[in-house]
Amino acid sequence: MPVYQLSEDLVFPSPHLASQEGLLAIGGDLSPSRLLLAYSNGIFPWYSEGEPILWWSPDPRLVLYPADLKVSRSLKKVCKQGAFELTMDRSFEEVITECARVRLENQEGTWIVDDMVQAYCRLHDSGLAHSVEAWQDNRLAGGLYGVSLGSCFFGESMFTRVTNASKVALVALVQHLKPLGFAFIDCQITTAHLTRFGAREISRSRYLGELAEALKPATLQGKWAF
Score class of each variant (00 low, 15 high):
4 Y>D: 06
211 L>F: 00
161 R>Y: 13
54 L>R: 02
153 F>W: 12
83 A>K: 08
186 D>N: 00
144 L>P: 03
7 S>E: 13
33 S>L: 11
94 E>W: 11
42 G>T: 09
212 A>V: 01
100 A>T: 09
127 G>Q: 12
190 T>V: 13
159 F>E: 03
223 K>V: 15
122 R>Y: 08
28 G>F: 07
135 W>N: 01
110 T>D: 04
52 P>Q: 12
170 L>D: 05
62 L>M: 15
49 E>I: 09
205 S>K: 14
67 A>S: 14
201 E>M: 11
28 G>L: 05
131 S>Q: 05
35 L>K: 06
27 G>F: 02
126 S>F: 14
214 A>E: 06
38 A>H: 03
190 T>Y: 09
143 G>W: 13
184 F>S: 03
86 L>G: 07
159 F>Q: 00
24 L>S: 07
157 S>C: 10
176 H>V: 00
195 T>D: 07
38 A>L: 03
113 V>H: 11
166 S>W: 02
43 I>P: 04
108 E>A: 12
200 R>G: 02
14 S>Q: 08
222 G>P: 04
29 D>T: 10
210 E>W: 12
82 G>S: 10
220 L>M: 05
143 G>K: 10
6 L>P: 08
199 A>V: 05
91 S>P: 03
76 K>D: 10
156 E>Y: 12
14 S>H: 11
181 G>C: 05
123 L>R: 06
127 G>C: 12
89 D>Q: 02
73 R>H: 13
98 E>Y: 12
161 R>K: 15
82 G>D: 08
65 Y>P: 03
85 E>M: 09
142 G>L: 07
27 G>T: 10
20 Q>L: 13
131 S>D: 03
141 A>Y: 04
164 N>D: 15
134 A>C: 09
146 G>M: 13
197 F>K: 00
209 G>Y: 12
222 G>T: 01
42 G>K: 04
59 D>W: 01
22 G>F: 02
127 G>Y: 14
121 C>D: 10
80 K>Y: 13
24 L>Q: 04
140 L>G: 11
138 N>L: 10
123 L>M: 09
22 G>Y: 06
221 Q>D: 05
15 P>F: 04
193 H>Q: 11
174 V>D: 00
187 C>N: 06
93 E>W: 10
6 L>C: 04
145 Y>R: 07
129 A>S: 14
107 Q>K: 15
176 H>A: 05
156 E>G: 08
29 D>Y: 01
57 S>P: 08
131 S>T: 08
108 E>N: 07
50 G>I: 05
154 F>Q: 02
178 K>H: 02
11 V>D: 07
225 A>T: 13
149 L>V: 09
37 L>Y: 10
67 A>E: 15
191 T>C: 07
164 N>W: 15
18 A>Q: 01
69 L>Q: 03
100 A>V: 06
216 K>C: 07
144 L>Q: 03
168 V>Y: 02
201 E>I: 07
179 P>T: 01
177 L>A: 05
64 L>W: 15
90 R>N: 12
197 F>G: 02
87 T>V: 09
53 I>D: 09
190 T>M: 12
99 C>M: 10
9 D>S: 12
138 N>C: 09
43 I>D: 02
20 Q>S: 13
19 S>N: 09
146 G>S: 06
64 L>K: 10
138 N>H: 15
73 R>V: 05
120 Y>C: 08
178 K>D: 01
80 K>L: 11
191 T>M: 05
221 Q>E: 13
162 V>T: 14
6 L>N: 01
43 I>G: 07
10 L>R: 01
